[in-house]
Structures are given as structure tokens and as C-alpha cells.
């Protein structure tokens, strides 16, 4: 018999968190250096990850420090990243103003070896100041 997700979590499906960020040359340079790229002027393909997690105070995060987006009303406190799927319809450049929206698209539960595993599917879109979608991620996180 399939396990049901808690009603409180079900109620969050479809909810969106939004923010706006301005891309600076420093953002690009530091991201490129962090991933070992020699070219630190052009934004790497996955540069949008710079803004993928909301910058809330540490006290707002779950006890394990995992992103606020994973702070779901479920009886599971440990999180790991499972999979990630990106599309890159456009480029990101210094000076761009990105509208970032993260939405909980789905949540489901499976029986694991050590107990229940909760899967959270979070979609994040990045739209520039011209209204063009430049990147989109669908990520699946696992909480146990």
C-alpha cells in the first residue's frame, strides 16, 4: 500500500517563493573560481546556482543547515540532493536582473531500507529583466 504524504506538506505543493537578484561580475568571477574554471568572466552554464537557495538567516534554516526550500512539514530531518535537471534557454550576463521563483511541484514518499524516504520536487526558474527565461531547474531532494 502506498504511503501518503502529510496533509500539511500536500498543502504546500504549488506554493512559490520569489526573489530578485542582480548579477555582478563578482558573482560570476567567484562562481567560476569555485568550480575551477579558468575563464572567470563568462558565466558558466550552471552559474544560476549562485542564486538557487534563498539567503535567509541561519536561524531560519532546518537544524542540519539544509536550504529553507527543504524545510517541509514531514517527520524527516536529514536531507540529500538526489537529481537535478536543467534547461538553459538563454545566457546570463553581468548586469542582468533575475527574477527567481522556486515552486514545490511535487512530493511523494517511498519505503527505504531505513524507513520512509520523502521526495521533494522543486522547480526553480530564472527570468531576466527582458522577461526571457534563461534557466530552469527541476530538482529532486530526498529527506529521511
Amino acid at each position: 500500500m502506498p504511503h501518503e504524504i502529510p496533509q500539511a506538506l500536500r498543502a504546500l505543493i504549488g506554493k512559490t517563493r520569489s526573489r530578485t537578484r542582480t548579477v555582478t561580475p563578482e558573482h560570476i568571477r567567484r562562481f567560476a573560481q569555485a568550480i575551477g574554471e579558468s575563464d572567470d568572466v563568462k558565466a558558466p552554464p550552471l552559474f544560476c546556482q549562485s542564486f538557487i537557495f534563498e539567503d535567509v538567516p541561519l536561524a531560519s534554516l532546518p537544524p542540519d543547515g539544509s536550504p529553507i526550500e527543504l524545510d517541509a512539514p514531514i517527520p524527516a530531518s536529514r536531507a540529500v540532493g538526489g537529481s537535478s535537471s536543467f534547461e538553459f534557454p538563454g545566457d546570463i550576463r553581468a548586469g542582468d536582473i533575475l527574477r527567481i521563483e522556486s515552486t514545490l511541484r511535487d512530493a511523494y514518499v517511498k519505503e527505504g531500507k531505513g524507513g520512509l524516504l520523502y521526495f521533494l520536487v522543486i522547480e526553480t526558474s530564472f527570468v531576466n529583466q527582458e522577461g526571457k527565461l534563461v534557466a530552469k531547474e527541476s530538482a529532486t531532494y530526498i529527506k529521511r
Partner: peptide, 18 residues
Amino acid sequence: DLFMFSAVTWNRHQIHYN
């Protein structure tokens, strides 16, 4: 490397540094 990537993505998940 892990520190820099956590820093630029503002990822404070402890399994990457603790």
C-alpha cells in the same frame, strides 16, 4: 573546493563542511 562552492551558492547544509 567544497567550501568555495557552498559559499558561492550560500549552501549551509552541514554535510558539506561538518
